[in-house]
Design a protein around this nucleic acid. Structure first.
Lengths: 196, 196
DNA sequence: TTAATGAACAAATTATCTTTTTGTTCATTA
DNA sequence: TAATGAACAAAAAGATAATTTGTTCATTAA
């Protein structure tokens, strides 16, 4: 097996094992046997169990981010981009069951209140994507002239709140409603617009 | 010491001990000695350590809720009530350091995503207060005609998000800014108002 | 009659040690 | 270069004893 070419296969196997047992209970034996190799051979692909975990999670996070980005880039207007981003990000997790389980086992991966975010670099890119959509919307005059940096942070926080609720709550339906309602509140605001 | 009259003194002492050590490390001995009594005498006031904890926390939660309610009732307009509610609730915790520490030790008291909320009854009243303000605002036509029940839940969730951030984040200043910005976003929305 | 105490007991926590499992290294092989 | 199995170190799980702490209760003080 060529190393670089087949990292995907390794990550896929690792992800399902970590999904099933969580980091602590998952063993290198579990992962190796699923790949029909010995655990010592896993050290060709990662220097330690912890690193294998970190790399696997980073790989899954990036895949998620990519899917959202692809969906956003198919839209042209800022309003549409913002809407697609919000709904696609949430909808994706319903399709990636293994990753959802991993997030459930380890809430520190995508923390509501990051003290030290282990995937800071990846999440920073998500904030940047939001910021760019805000900038476009402000330029288009379809968004109010908010502070793009600050508001990107705040929106990312609210967005995370819903993501986390998605995979903690079991009742999907009730959540879907709440999400649509919150989206509506966020874009239209609570107060009636003062006629200018 | 008369029982009913002096529950406050018991709760105050219990709160500071639980604040210092958390439920697990706090002992009845710690609490009793602070009150200059023996631990066995604490059983006059509460049937178990767990119950004493529960009652103490409920007492502190209600005190917090009361302060916010009092501040809100001094306003007459829905906009003002909503604003005061949001800022008072957050500002209060800066004054109740002991309770803040207890919340820090035990995030389940005021959970971001309650599976089974141990203080459901108390929190339901907070949601009701928000709902009533929404109803008033909609009637006054200063708020858009949102669904009061659903939106009260959503706003309570966002509000909790900030409360939790208040006592987890150490940097107060950075938080204050984010809170004001989020409040602004929430009431005015992201999108420009379509001229009707 | 209510609040408080200290002694006695039960339950939970901590500490210590042993056993087992699992992560990591390395010399060797395909 | 990728893979293996044997060897070793580190961590986890189990078992047991020692200690602390929660709870009960008969008795005393206000």
């Amino acid at each position: 097996m060529r190393k670089k070419e087949n990292m995907e296969i390794i990550y896929e196997a690792a992800l399902s094992v970590f999904a099933k047992f969580g980091f602590r209970k998952a063993t290198l034996e579990d992962i190796a046997s699923r790949l029909q190799m010995t655990k010592s051979n896993l050290y060709i692909y990662a220097p330690s169990k912890k690193e294998l975990y970190r790399q696997t999670v980073a790989w899954a996070l990036l895949r998620w981010q990519l899917r959202v980005r692809e969906a956003v880039e198919q839209e042209s207007g800022a309003k549409e981009k913002f809407t697609v981003m919000c709904f696609k990000a949430v909808a994706y997790l319903a399709e990636d069951e293994a990753f959802r389980q991993v997030l459930l086992h380890d809430p520190d991966i995508f923390p509501m209140f990051p003290v030290t975010d282990p995937f800071q670099e990846i999440n920073r890119n998500s904030v940047l994507m939001i910021r760019n959509i805000l900038l476009q919307g402000i330029q288009e005059r379809t968004f109010r002239p908010v502070d793009p940096e600050k508001m990107a942070e705040v929106i990312f926080m609210i967005y995370k709140m819903f993501i986390i609720r998605t995979y903690i709550k079991t009742e999907e339906k009730q959540f879907q409603e709440a999400f649509a309602d919150t989206f509506e509140l966020l874009v239209n605001g609570l107060f009636v617009k003062s006629e200018a």
